[in-house]
Each structure stands twice: as structure tokens, then as C-alpha cells.
């Protein structure tokens, strides 16, 4: 049984899945709008939490945040389920498919054979939609892919019960009902306020704007504290988090700028349009940082000057974003 589900490619898995599920229910909504209302933009750098040997960095809020916030803000009725065993999780999926609903779910990336090997590692917060079953194969709409894919039931089951943080435990969700009228204006305002809070308020050095300054300082210390090989791997990891699949470019900054632009049109607010332009410039700075960092890695010279320069480039990103979010927070609604 295969449902009539329209697949659209998006930049990011969580906002992409949410967008496609809502569109399936007839809600006209774009990925940037979902991302912005869901307050998806963030920055975190946690040096003492190592992911495959490199310090953890993130350009987005916690997995699941976008999805939760968008449903709360838009008043969508969502059914969420977790399971104790893979058997029950697959049975639960089949039942919802039979009832005619496409199902979103959290999976590992490692156990998705349709993804190119280059992108498959033990990352457990990927999202995709299952919209059909054909024999033992499931039909997959993975928002980062151009086309739909298929996957063997056994593989999907493994991906849904992957171990390690954050453990999916068969987590799945589907839309039960959407409201007839959606107050986008209110949802947009709430989303922007929440995102300003996320970037500006955490009183800890590892989150929000503070973490950009922290990383800037750390990078300047790399040549003193790390071997050239390690320093190159650390830098490389930041670039991957910022640019590899799923961010839409510049660590979600362009995606958020696209949101502000769309919000400006919807709410007829020129100030938001200007904020969008400004964030595009900031995104270009991040891209410039990644480009320069890659050049530094290629040279593999631990000469202090270029690491200092890289640190300065990040500091500028931090200064610009701090000023940006402080002004965005004070916008009169």
C-alpha cells in the first residue's frame, strides 16, 4: 500500500519532514517558515563533549525542538509514539500507514543504505517520512534527498532502534488534525522571540552567542595545544557541522534569513526584510570563515597568525550576531 504523498526536497531534515507532513494535510507552508516558527537557529560548542574524538559543535537547537514548537504554535494535533521493541515499533508503523497517514520518525543515519556512504555515521537525530509499504520494503521521503527512496524493513527497524545519544526508541509521529485557520502572525512573533532568547540568554559559555566567542578563543589556542593533525580535524568538524548536508548553507543562517524575508512579506514589515539582508551578510561571513579554515587545513601549517585570523573571523560573526539578535529582540510588534 502506497499513500499519495508529495515529496519535496528541503535543506534540513527536521524542518523538512514537518513541512512535508503539514503540506500533505493541506497547510501551505515553506521550510523557512517552519524553521523560524520552530526557533531552529542556534550555536553551541561544548569542548568537553567529544563526538568521534572532536569537540561537539552545533548550529541548531536541540533535535525535536522545531517539531514541538511548530505544533504548539500552529495548534496542530499530532500523535507521538515511542516503543519498547523493534517488533512493536514496526507493527505500530504498519497500523498507522494502513489508516492512511504518512508517518514521520526519528532514525539513525548510519543504517540508511540509500544515503551515500560519505554521510553515514552514528548520528541518531535524523528525520524522515514513511509513506508506503511494498512487500517488505518501505517507501521513504527523506527531505534531504532529491527523490523518494526505498528501504528494507530490517534496515529501517535497525535505524529506528539505533543505540547512542539521542536514542530514537522507535519514536514516530503523525498529524491527526490541523486547524481550519492558522494564525501565522502570532506564531512568527513567538518564534522570533524564542530564537532571540535562545541565542542571547543562556548564562553559560557553551550556548548561544557566548559559544561563538568561546570557539573563537579556542581556535586561537589550537596551534599551542594540539598537533597539526588534530587541529585540522577539529577545524574540519566545525566546517562539516556548518556546511555538510542539512543546514542550507552557513550553518542555517541563510535558512533563517529566508524565514525573516518571508515573515516580512506576510506581516508587511520592512524592518524584518532589513534584518533578513543583515543575516545574509553574517551568513556570508560564516562561509568566509569556513573557506579560510579549509585553506588553513590544506596547508597544515600551524603558524599562529592564521589561527589567530580564523579566531578573529569567528569573533566578528559573534559580534555581528549579538548586535543582530539584541535589535531583533527589541522589535515593536
Amino acid at each position: 500500500m502506497i499513500l499519495d504523498f508529495k515529496h519535496y526536497q528541503h535543506a534540513h531534515c527536521e524542518s523538512g519532514v514537518t513541512t512535508n507532513l503539514l503540506r500533505h494535510e493541506g497547510v501551505e507552508i515553506s521550510e523557512p517558515l517552519v524553521f523560524g516558527i520552530g526557533a531552529g537557529l542556534f550555536f553551541a560548542h561544548i569542548p568537553f563533549v567529544k563526538v568521534s574524538g572532536t569537540p561537539g559543535s552545533s548550529f541548531r537547537s536541540m533535535p525535536g525542538t522545531i517539531f514541538k514548537r511548530i505544533n504548539k504554535s500552529l495548534g496542530v494535533d499530532i500523535q507521538v509514539k515511542r516503543f519498547g521493541t523493534p517488533e512493536k515499533a514496526m507493527q505500530g508503523l504498519d497500523e498507522v500507514l494502513k489508516s492512511g497517514k504518512p508517518v514521520g520518525m526519528q532514525t539513525s543515519v548510519y543504517y540508511l543504505p540509500y544515503l551515500p556512504e560519505a554521510f553515514r555515521f552514528h548520528f541518531n537525530a535524523h528525520n524522515l517520512v514513511v509513506f508506503g509499504k511494498n512487500g517488505d520494503e518501505y517507501m521513504i521521503s527523506d527531505p534531504v534527498m532529491e527523490e523518494v527512496s526505498t528501504i528494507a524493513g530490517e534496515d529501517l527497524s535497525k535505524a529506528r532502534f539505533a543505540k547512542g545519544f539521542p536514542e530514537p526508541k522507535g519514536f514516530m509521529y503523525y498529524v491527526k488534525d490541523v486547524p481550519k485557520e492558522i494564525n501565522f502572525e502570532e506564531a512568527i512573533k513567538k518564534g522570533i522571540k524564542k530564537n532571540c532568547w535562545l541565542m542571547l540568554s543562556p548564562p553559560l559559555p557553551w550556548f548561544g552567542i557566548n559559544a561563538i566567542f568561546l570557539l573563537s578563543k579556542k581556535i586561537k589556542q589550537y596551534p599551542k595545544k594540539l598537533t597539526p593533525r588534530k587541529a585540522a580535524l577539529y577545524l574540519g568538524n566545525i566546517i562539516r557541522m556548518q556546511e555538510e548536508i542539512g543546514t542550507g548553507g552557513a550553518g542555517f543562517r541563510f535558512l533563517y534569513a529566508a524565514f525573516l524575508q518571508e515573515a516580512a512579506d506576510m506581516l508587511k514589515r520592512d524592518d524584518l526584510a532589513r534584518f533578513a539582508e543583515e543575516l545574509t551578510e553574517i551568513g556570508d561571513l560564516w562561509r568566509n570563515f569556513a573557506y579560510s579554515a579549509a585553506r588553513q587545513m590544506k596547508a597544515r601549517k600551524s603558524d599562529l597568525v592564521s589561527f589567530d585570523e580564523l579566531g578573529d573571523m569567528l569573533e566578528e560573526c559573534g559580534v555581528r550576531e549579538k548586535s543582530f539578535f539584541k535589535r531583533l529582540e527589541k522589535v515593536n510588534w
Partner: peptide, 29 residues
């Protein structure tokens, strides 16, 4: 895989564009 990125068109409006990859990111991967 040609992923989707967001970029500004001639009219100043954001649009989704497919990208085969980027030198900097390919190198890091």
C-alpha cells in the same frame, strides 16, 4: 546527492538551489 541550499536571487528573494558540494566542505569530509 545534490543537497538544497538557500541563496538570494536577482530579485533579492531567497530561493532553494541544488548544490553538488563545496570545496571547503568536501575537503573537511
Amino acid at each position: 546527492l545534490r543537497k538544497l541550499v538557500y541563496a538570494v536571487g536577482k530579485d533579492g528573494k531567497y530561493t532553494g538551489v541544488n548544490s553538488a558540494g563545496w570545496e571547503a566542505e568536501n575537503f573537511a569530509t
